[in-house]
Write a protein that binds this DNA or RNA. Structure first.
Length: 589
RNA sequence: GGCCCCAUAGCUCAGUUGGAUAGAGCAACAGACUUCUAAUCUGUAGGUCCGAGGUUCGAAUCCUCGUGGGGUCGCCA
């Protein structure tokens, strides 16, 4: 198994530090910040000097002297107060790139211990079309899912449908108001009920805002909706049947969006699936003295003495008897523990819910709802803003539908692609496939390249550009290579052993060798933007190489074979990382 | 009011956990095409890292106090 280049170097340098009776952790090697001075650097001599009260330059000199004997470096130098700059011997770099290229995951999977990770993302709601708010949850969640899969983890993804709260009661009562003749509202009716849904998805989407508005003006309606919610949760047959229709219709609709975005779920569970688990859980919490009555509601107090902030108790059961989403979230944790015994559960949900998750996680710990060493983590993210810096809205101030957003992106991509003259080169089917891929790549790359927690400005024109740090630029680099490989095949040119003849080749190999750190650190921090940075650095180095080095036209056969091989490896890596970002690359464009 | 997040080039953003001269991309300017796809590449210019203290040999990064923006603070999700 191949350890990453940086960890190999760090281990070597760390050994030297150890030989000098210093902590080997000071041997940490990082990418050079000043490429003109070296490819890599180690700053450990400064930190080591501090803790050992020795002279940093002296330590650095010892380290350099010891490293020179290894023969791994073409150049070693000492600069400033004790920075060690290094340039690798080409043979070492070549061996490394060769080694990682033979492995399907570029040697990365071998560095990890497989874990079982549950990813909770997407989070659509019954009757509400997915909107901008779901964009990031879906894109980030799917990227993390693919990342964990890549690392060899068992990745379980659950869409966790919002299908069980007060909105359900509101919808039931709204439908009753508009179509009282339907059979679902008769208490005595135990079914069977019609198999056809009484409402279409479009109707549902009208119904919810109407019901929501009505509940704000009409307290009696709200009260009726609360009652309906309670009865639904307690199994009233007609309500259950109607609810099932609403859920089915909504799931079918959200699947269209998820398919467009390439999101995959291994489980299509929802809040409602916790219903049978909840009574037992409530009883256990009460029996163990973990919950108590407060103003008529059942709550778990989760505040701790050490808290800086005030953490309100988690409400398990409202005074009207119905449960809330905190209750279903807690029950979901218990069910996941039973069904999967996970090492980690990640919640890819809007950052604004951080307090909620804090409460739920604490309640889960308090109630031993899952293994003590299992990790619960809220992977939050910021909002998608318009050019005015405020959360994205439609022209008339409404919620932007996810579908509309995706269609706009594809439309914009189509424009760009047609302006580039692709309509002449491809038939309608292929053109539309390219436009779709470009559009999706544009929004995904733009979204994922931002640091998760910060808000970002949604600007399609910028996202769909082929220049700069955009999705389409990354795709273009990959397509360029594909085109070249096709040509090579046509001309019977084959790839061979790697050699280095130009700086551009060396730089490209160095970029290829950085994947491991990017992937591992992206996984550790749940930060896909690190993957974006890596693939961008890689495509930039490739484009520079492409510019400086002829591949097919190279006359020296060995060099030509090496360059072709380098192209193959680069393509594999670009496609691999883009796959982790959820971006698909067309064959031609 | 308490707490959380954010503030870096004209614009949009990175910044490898405390290291050298703070980096990209757009936009601007100057170059490179009888192309393995120029949808590319090379270069120039652009900074009070919100402010003030502090810790340190060394701070965009850590601590304190402010300023500005966003969010949140028990029966919605």
């Amino acid at each position: 198994m191949t350890a990453s280049l940086l960890s190999q170097l760090s281990a070597r340098v760390g050994q030297v530090f150890a030989d000098c009776e210093l902590d080997p952790k000071f041997g940490k090697v990082v990418l050079s910040q000043r490429r003109e001075l070296g490819q890599f650097q180690c700053n450990g001599a400064l930190a080591a000097a501090k803790s050992a009260k020795r002279n940093p330059r002296e330590i650095a000199e010892l380290v350099v002297a010891a490293l020179e004997k290894t023969g791994l470096f073409q150049e070693l130098s000492l600069a400033g107060p004790g920075f060690i700059n290094m340039k690798l011997a080409d043979d070492f770099l070549l061996d490394h790139v060769n080694a990682i290229s033979k492995d399907e995951t570029f040697g990365i999977r071998g560095e990890c211990t497989p874990e079982k990770v549950i990813l909770d993302f997407g989070g659509p709601n019954v009757a509400k079309a997915m909107h901008v708010g779901h964009l990031r949850a879906t894109i980030i969640g799917e990227s993390l899912r693919r990342l964990h899969e890549f690392l060899g983890n068992e990745a379980i993804s659950d869409v966790h449908f919002g299908d069980w709260g007060l909105p359900m009661g509101l919808l039931i009562k709204e439908i009753e108001l508009q179509q009282p003749e339907l059979p679902y509202f008769d208490t005595a009716n135990e079914g069977p009920f019609p198999s056809e849904s009484p409402v279409t998805v479009d109707e549902l989407q009208e119904l919810y805002p109407a019901a929501s508005a009505r509940s704000k003006e009409d307290p009696e309606f709200l009260e009726a909706a609360r009652q309906a919610t309670f009865e639904l949760q307690n199994g009233r047959a007609g309500y259950r049947a109607l609810w099932q229709h609403m859920l089915n219709v909504s799931i079918a609709e959200t699947k269209i969006d998820f398919d467009l975005l390439g999101a995959h779920f291994t489980e299509w569970k929802g809040e409602a699936d916790t219903n049978d688990h909840i009574p037992g859980m409530l009883k256990r919490f009460a029996d163990e003295g973990l919950s108590e009555l407060s103003d008529g509601a059942v709550v778990v107090r989760v505040a701790e003495d050490a808290d800086k902030k005030e953490i309100p108790p988690l409400i398990l059961q409202k005074s009207d008897g119905a449960v809330m989403y905190g209750t279903t979230d807690l029950a979901t944790i218990e069910q996941r523990q039973i069904a999967h015994d996970p090492d980690k559960i990640l919640y890819v949900v809007d950052a604004r819910q951080s307090l909620h998750f804090e409460q739920v996680f604490r309640a889960a710990r308090k109630g031993s709802s899952l293994d003590a060493d299992a990790v619960l983590e809220h992977v939050g993210f910021g909002t998608v803003n318009g050019k005015d810096g405020k959360p994205l809205k439609t022209r008339d101030g409404g919620v932007v539908r996810l579908r509309a957003l995706i269609e706009d992106a594809i439309g914009e991509a189509r424009k760009v692609v047609e302006e580039a003259g692709m309509a002449d080169r491809f038939d309608a089917g292929e053109l539309s496939d390219i436009a779709t891929k470009v559009g999706i790549a544009a929004i995904k790359f733009a979204d994922l390249s931002n640091q998760r927690m910060s808000n970002y400005v949604f600007d399609l024109e910028r996202f769909t550009k082929f220049e700069g740090k955009t999705g389409p630029y990354q795709m273009y680099a990959a397509v360029r290579i594909k085109s070249m490989l096709r040509k090579a095949a046509d001309q019977n040119i084959t790839s061979g052993d790697l050699v280095i003849t130009e700086e551009a080749e060396r730089n490209l190999m160095l970029a290829l060798s950085q994947l491991s750190e990017a992937v591992l650190s992206a996984a550790e921090k749940s930060a896909p933007n690190i993957l974006c940075d890596h693939v961008y650095a890689l495509t930039q180095e490739f484009n520079a190489f492409y510019h400086d080095c002829q591949v097919l036209g190279e006359t020296d056969e060995k060099v030509r074979a090496s360059r072709l091989r380098l192209c193959e490896i680069t393509l594999r890596q670009i496609e691999a990382v883009l796959h982790l970002l959820g971006i698909a690359v067309p064959e031609r464009m």
